[in-house]
Design a protein around this nucleic acid. Structure first.
Lengths: 201, 201
DNA sequence: GTCTATATTTTGATAGAC
DNA sequence: GTCTATCAAAATATAGAC
């Protein structure tokens, strides 16, 4: 049935966000028109402005929601061993990003299209997440189980490596996500670990 | 002095490419208009079409040139030890990408904006580069100095890690590029190396 | 809350003068 | 080889009817 003037739907707001997420991820923010988003939702373009002030706010809200849920979802246990905490981070990061490919893509590709004010707010959230990892690396260095010259560099290196999974991993491929998680964990573990001390018997 | 009709310049072609490179990297392909490129060059929009068939060709040419020079610049010595070859790759990749931030950015961010045919050609070039690294990893696994479960995964992990340098490294920062190269090399080396065999004396 | 209609800009690309 | 002028299409956002 065709949608007509006066129709209502309490879930149009979320559907606008879902349509924008999908289209921004697929074509890029600048290449998507408000009319395309409206068509995906099933309304006319003018109706979108009941749910967003403008196109920029739509982008910002999607990024902010993504980073908010990223920060909320990662659970770290400061009393656990650094190696166990790092393993948890690696597995969490891969899994969380794998479950939200569109949001991840937008969060990394559309930073340029944020206004300076919105960019600063998103970057602050991203830094908070990076700090969670760096805290773990610092703990490992402090107790001697990790050996990295600079924890900030190691943080960026690990996150870049893990996030890169989304550029090539496909569920239909030859490897399961569990296998991928395990292999990345082994590489990360070796990359940051101190050489074991071998006692001569 | 204002440019007038009939002015000539034999280097307008390269300047069009340079302007497009800069603007595409800064704002994204879809957000840059032909008029903006023309303004950056100092000509009118119509004049651009003496140097490119259309906007898409401009993007494709920039990506292809970048990957061609990447492939031409990396020198690998198949007779050297795998660890030495890998070290050379790591240092080369970081340096080469650091020297061309705009081209790197475009090559990774604008794949969506290529036509399917152009996308396939660019992806083929990228895969050739990845294969250069995988060849090194396979050699190391074959001789026992490297221990990675899957060389394809390790290839993607290493390249993602190294390319990520461009997202945070600034020459004016507290670290020199030499220091960054050395620390990434240590992490990559440890990540792929087989544990040393410790002889009991 | 959604529609239709529209204002105002801007876009990629082309034609023809010089 | 570059200019000016222009076409046809598409963009964001708003106004007002229902």
């Amino acid at each position: 049935m065709a949608r007509t003037a006066g129709s209502h739907s309490d879930i149009t707001g979320p559907r606008v966000r879902a349509a924008a997420l999908k289209l921004f991820a697929r074509q890029g923010f600048a290449a998507v028109s408000m009319r395309e988003i409206a068509r995906e939702v099933g309304v006319q373009a003018g109706a979108l402005y009941n749910y967003t002030a403008d196109k920029q706010s739509l982008l910002f809200d999607l990024m902010q929601s993504h980073l908010d849920s990223l920060l909320a979802a990662f659970e770290d246990d400061p009393t656990a061993a650094p190696e166990a905490r790092l393993r948890q981070f690696v597995q969490f990061h891969i899994r969380f990003h794998h479950d939200r490919p569109d949001a991840v893509f937008i969060a990394y590709m559309e930073l340029r299209n944020l206004t300076p004010e919105n960019f600063a707010r998103i970057e602050a959230l991203r830094r908070r997440y990076e700090d969670r990892l760096e805290t773990i690396l610092k703990a490992g260095v402090a107790e001697g189980s990790f050996a990295v010259t600079d924890t900030k560099i190691a943080t960026m290196a690990v996150i870049a490596m893990l996030t890169g999974v989304s550029t090539w991993f496909r569920s239909a491929g030859r490897l399961s996500l569990d296998e991928v998680q395990e292999q990345y964990w082994q590489m990360v573990r070796k990359a940051v670990s101190a050489p074991a001390i071998h006692h001569v018997s």
